[in-house]
Structures are given as structure tokens and as C-alpha cells.
Design a protein around this nucleic acid. Structure first.
Length: 560
RNA sequence: GCGGGUGUAACUCAAUGGUAGAGUACCUGCCUUCCAAGCAGGCUACGUGGGUUCGAUUCCCAUCACCCGCUCCA
């Protein structure tokens, strides 16, 4: 987050801002606050009739481009609740929960485990009964930093020891102090003592209990990401699906995080949907695959209509990387509320499989049989055991035939993508001197593909239009509307993002043609009624509008 | 979680210590041959819970939700 676009959005006549978008989403049935009749619930949102189609189209496009159109990726659908050990192995139980302490005085908030104390107990050797004298030094940071902050005083203390006295030093953090000692702690910001609250755990994982009785023993978590289900099933998939490295396993599904502060419409919510791919490859090829997915995933957003310079690809600085990752890139979008992440592509090495191998005690390594069979004659070996024996004592004796695959993880948020596509599509322009609000979705993503209208409600036009509608409905999600003025009906569909309007008019009754109307240009052209299905299919697949120089909507080939 | 702001109809807004009005939208009918036309009629609201008051949508308190800033975001 952060960046040049974070100032107040301009609210001029044609500007998109979140208020307008939220309002449109509500008005047209894209997105509603969850449980709204009870006042809503923070961090949860519902998708309405148009919103669910949009989001489904996004997920379907991702699924098709990532899995079914490829030879090297398979899908999976894991349970939301998994064995709690999964989250120990993944680091979510340790790293996902932060104890926080607030200063009552200056309202500062601190990671309680980063508030460090250094404690000295001064004891006289010959008087075991005398209580040792205790001196504390406090600060923010690790023990070394706090020692530096207090170097002078500590030095003074150490040099004041008399013969027959011992000085014992213990380091620790705020969470380990007893209640009395906590009152001695100074707030690192305002410097006042005893102003910090008890540390409170901010565990971002939702907890539940498997079974009717709630106790510690059956505590379970709602998954905070879908990825771990993939790693946990790595062996199952390898053993059953004839997949060979390099290959990927992909999943779309709900995840849950108890965000401290849900904000920005559906961008950060507590229940959200992820589209994640774990692509497993040989360590030697990981860098290449990382580069491939980094590029392919960025292109995917462009191919689906995010053409503006609001979309960017940002490589993480080395100091931003998680300790196990050798490279990570974020695909970001400049939302009205700031530049924020849509998707991260991470080179995770063998960290995840390694963790699960360790915590489960199961061998998760991959054996490259093809390569072994190819190479073994040259080495004069008949069995892999010989090879292992030869390399006994080596760090990776089975390498390069047996190894933990490295993984490239493109991890996308379906709700964030939906919001980005909405923001990108939202436009206000002028048609015949009137202001028009239009959602210029890529036809592949548009909730409704076409709307069918009789020009007026008489002379048999409604009947003819409905017949065409029925025929189209067998193939596409189309909409029929015969009420009111034709212009109003066009505009309504513009707000829903419907790319094409099909109108039955007076001429249709004599020559059996209909007009097609393009959402973005408002241009119209005639098509034989009997060919409407094929004509719409052609348009949705990117064939040009008759008379137009460029295709109605360009659909480039994805780079896979 | 802290500070500030907002909460009235589906949407955008108004007025008011004596229970509320507009525009748009929506519904019905008439009319209408291509971009939110017209006519007639109709439906829908004071976020929730307390308090003060004869009486609260209005004042006070709490709560919930949303917005902005901070914080957080493996």
C-alpha cells in the first residue's frame, strides 16, 4: 500500500470514486453488505445476482486458463478445515498471531513480543536469604538493540559490582513479565511507565471446534489460505494422476482471516475467495518458471480488460522477501483508495513441502523416473539404491533424481480481482449530450452477454423478440426487456455492463433481421434473426463489429 | 484497536422537539419506430438499544455499520 495515488480522489464529472462504485454495486445488485437487515457485519459482503455472475466468470476464466486449457496443471478442492498440525507446519499458528499491547497514554500500539526487557539480578554470594536486587532495562526491538539503547547505564551497573556479588542477566519480552513487572515497563513512545495494556492476541485465524463440545483438544481453524491444502495433497496427486514434474495443482476456494481492520469495500474482508496455483518444478528450473508465471499472470489481467496504467507489476526488494522466498512479485492495481495487491507470485523454494515433510514425518520427495532411466546406463547402475549408496553422506543423496520440488505460487484474490475489474470497467461518458454510466467489462467477464428488446411493445415485436431471446438463452446468459423507452433499456444494460443489445424493430417484421448495438460505441448494425446466436458467439470470441476497424473487443491469446 | 466524520425510501439528498419531502429508480396503465421522452396512478425510509421530555427522526448516552486518518495486513 501507499503510493502517489493515495491522496483524495478527484470528484469531477467523469471521475470514478469508491462511493459511486459502491452505490452502483448496491443499486444494480452486484454487491450488498452481509446481513444488512440486521445492520451489517464488519468484513463480510454478499454478491447479488449480477455480482455473482461477474465473479463466477472471473473464476471460470482463471480456471480455464490455468487448468483446463493446459496439459500441466490439475485442479483440486480441499476442505476448509484441516488438521491443526497443517497450520503449525505452515507457520500460521506461530507467525500468524501477534500479541499486541496498547499504550493507554499515547495510544501507541506495539507488538508485545518486540517489547524487550533486560533484567539484572544483583545477589550477594554469602547471603542466600537476602532477596536479590532487580534492575530492569526496557526498550523496543531485540535484546541487542535494547542493550545498545541502554549501553551507558548497563556499563555503569556492571562496573559497580563489588567482590562477593554476582550479577545475573536475563532477557525476555513483555509477554513473559508478571503483572507487577509489567507496571514497570516504559512505553517506548511516550516513555511513561505502567501505561501498557496486557498483551492481547491478534490471531488472524478463525477458530472453531470439530465436534459438539468446545475444548482445546478439538480446536480447529478455518483455513487462512487455500495453498496448504495443495501441499498436503501433493503426494496424493502425484501418486494418482500421472502428473510429472513440472506440473501444477490449482484450487479456488474460500479462506478466512480475522483481519483487525477490514476496510475498502470488498478489498480486505474476513471471508474471501482465493485462486491459487502451486507449480512444482525441478530446483534447476524454478527461476525459469518463476519468470514464466510472473509474466503470464500479469498478462492475464491485461487480456481480461485491465488495460490502463493502473495495473502494475512490482518485484519485491530483497529485504521485503519472506525468509524462504528467493523472489516475489506483486501484481498491483491503483484503486481509488491506493495501490494495492491483486496477486502475488512467489518463488517459495521447497519451504512448504519441507515443512510438511518434517511435521508429518512423511516422505514428500519426488522421484524423476524418466531421468533416472535415461541416465542410469551411462553410470553403469541398475538400481537407484546403488546411486543412493554411492552418495551416502551427501546432503541430498538422491539429487538430481529424487528431490523436494521447488514451487512457484501465483496466489490471486478473486474478490480483489472482481473489485479491480469493476473499478476498471466503471466509466462515465456522454451519449447524445446526456451523462451515461457504463461498466465496460470484457465480454468474457460480463454478467449478461446480451439483452433482447422489442423496439416498441406492439405489432408483434415483443413476440418476435421473445422467440429470439429464448433461442439465445439456450447458449448464453441473456436478458429480455420490453418495458419503457428503448433508450432507457439500453442505459440500464450499460450500467449492468451488458456488451450487446439486440433489438427487434419494424424492419425485422418484414426482412427478418435484427439490430445489434455495441455497448461501448453505441454503434448498430443489422444481422439476420436466424443468425443471432452465431453472431453473438462471434462477437464474444472477439470477431470485429461490422464496419469497425478493430475488433469489438480484443481477446489476445494468453501466453500459455 | 485509537481519533475524526456519517447514518432519513432501492439510490442521491432535504426539512423538523409535535412521527417526514424531492429527484432518480421501481411497479401498473396509456402513449411511444432507436439511446434515461410524456401523461395518469402506485409502493418504499428516520441503523439499533437506552435516556431526557407530555411528546425524540431531531437533544444526550451506548451500540452497530460505513467513510477518512493512524495502526495492522505472515
Amino acid at each position: 500500500m501507499g503510493g502517489p495515488d493515495q491522496g483524495q480522489p478527484r470528484k469531477d464529472r467523469f471521475a470514478m470514486d469508491m462511493d459511486k462504485l459502491v452505490s452502483l454495486c448496491k443499486r444494480r445488485g452486484f454487491i450488498f453488505p452481509s446481513s444488512e437487515i440486521y445492520g451489517g457485519i464488519n468484513g463480510f459482503w454478499d454478491y447479488g445476482p449480477l455480482g455473482v455472475e461477474l465473479k463466477r466468470n472471473i473464476k471460470d476464466a482463471w480456471w480455464r486458463d490455468t487448468i483446463t486449457s493446459r496439459d500441466d496443471v490439475v485442479g483440486i478442492d480441499c476442505s476448509i478445515i484441516m488438521h491443526p498440525k497443517v497450520w503449525e507446519a505452515s507457520g500460521h499458528i506461530g507467525g500468524f498471531s501477534d500479541p499486541m499491547a496498547d499504550c493507554r497514554e499515547c495510544k501507541g500500539r506495539f507488538r508485545a513480543d518486540q517489547l524487550t526487557y533486560i533484567r539484572f539480578d544483583l545477589a550477594k554470594d554469602d547471603s542466600a536469604e537476602t532477596k536479590p536486587k532487580t534492575i530492569y532495562f526496557f526498550g523496543s526491538g531485540n535484546a541487542v538493540e535494547v542493550a545498545e539503547q541502554n549501553a551507558k547505564k548497563i556499563g555503569k551497573l556492571q562496573s559497580s559490582i563489588k567482590p562477593g556479588e554476582t550479577l545475573n542477566r536475563t532477557d525476555g519480552d513483555y509477554t513473559t513479565l508478571d503483572t507487577e513487572a509489567k507496571t514497570l515497563f516504559h512505553c517506548p513512545t511516550c516513555g511513561k511507565a505502567g501505561t501498557l495494556t496486557e498483551p492481547r492476541n491478534f490471531n488472524l485465524m478463525f477458530e472453531s471446534h470439530a465436534g459438539a463440545i468446545a475444548d482445546e483438544a478439538n480446536k480447529v481453524y478455518l483455513r487462512p489460505e487455500t495453498a496448504q491444502g495443495i501441499f498436503a495433497n501433493f503426494k496424493n496427486v502425484v501418486d494418482t494422476s500421472r502428473t510429472k514434474i513440472p506440473f501444477g495443482i490449482a484450487q479456488v476456494g474460500k479462506s478466512f482471516r480475522n483481519e483487525i481492520n477490514p476496510r475498502n469495500f470488498i478489498f480486505r474482508s474476513r471471508e474471501f475467495e482465493q485462486m491459487e496455483l502451486e507449480f512444482f518444478c525441478h530446483p534447476d528450473q524454478a527461476a525459469e518458471w518463476y519468470a514464466y508465471w510472473r509474466k503470464a499472470r500479469f498478462q492475464w489481467y491485461i487480456d481480461h480488460g485491465i488495460r490502463s496504467d493502473k495495473l502494475r507489476l512490482r518485484d519485491h526488494d530483497p529485504d521485503e522477501l519472506a525468509f524462504y522466498s528467493t523472489a516475489t512479485a506483486d501484481i498491483e492495481y491503483a484503486f481509488p483508495f491506493g495501490i494495492s495487491e491483486l496477486e502475488g507470485i512467489a518463488h517459495r523454494g521447497d519451504y512448504d513441502l519441507g515443512q510438511h515433510q518434517q511435521f508429518s514425518g512423511k516422505d514428500l520427495s519426488y522421484f524423476d523416473e524418466e531421468r533416472w532411466e535415461r541416465d542410469k546406463p551411462a553410470m553403469g547402475m541398475t538400481s537407484f539404491k546403488e546411486y543412493l549408496k554411492k552418495n551416502e553422506g551427501a546432503e541430498k543423496p538422491g539429487y538430481p533424481y529424487q528431490y523436494l520440488p521447488h514451487v512457484i505460487e501465483p496466489s490471486a484474490g478473486a474478490d480483489r480481482a472482481t473489485l479491480a475489474f469493476l473499478c476498471e470497467a466503471y466509466q462515465e461518458d456522454e451519449v447524445g449530450g446526456e451523462l451515461r454510466t457504463v461498466l465496460k467489462f470484457h465480454p468474457r467477464l460480463a454478467p449478461i452477454k446480451a439483452a433482447v428488446f422489442p423496439l416498441v411493445k406492439k405489432d408483434g415485436m415483443p413476440e418476435k423478440a421473445e422467440a429470439i431471446y429464448r433461442e439465445l438463452k439456450r447458449h448464453f446468459n441473456v436478458f429480455f426487456d420490453e418495458k419503457g423507452a428503448i433508450g432507457r433499456r439500453y442505459r440500464r444494460q450499460d450500467e449492468a455492463g451488458t456488451p450487446f443489445g439486440i433489438t427487434v424493430d419494424g424492419q425485422s417484421l418484414t426482412d427478418d433481421t435484427v439490430t445489434f448495438r455495441d455497448r461501448d460505441s453505441c454503434k448498430q448494425w443489422r444481422v439476420p434473426a436466424a443468425g443471432a446466436v452465431q453472431a453473438l458467439r462471434d462477437l464474444l470470441e472477439g470477431k470485429p463489429i461490422p464496419g469497425a476497424e478493430s475488433p469489438a473487443t480484443e481477446i489476445e491469446e494468453s501466453s500459455n
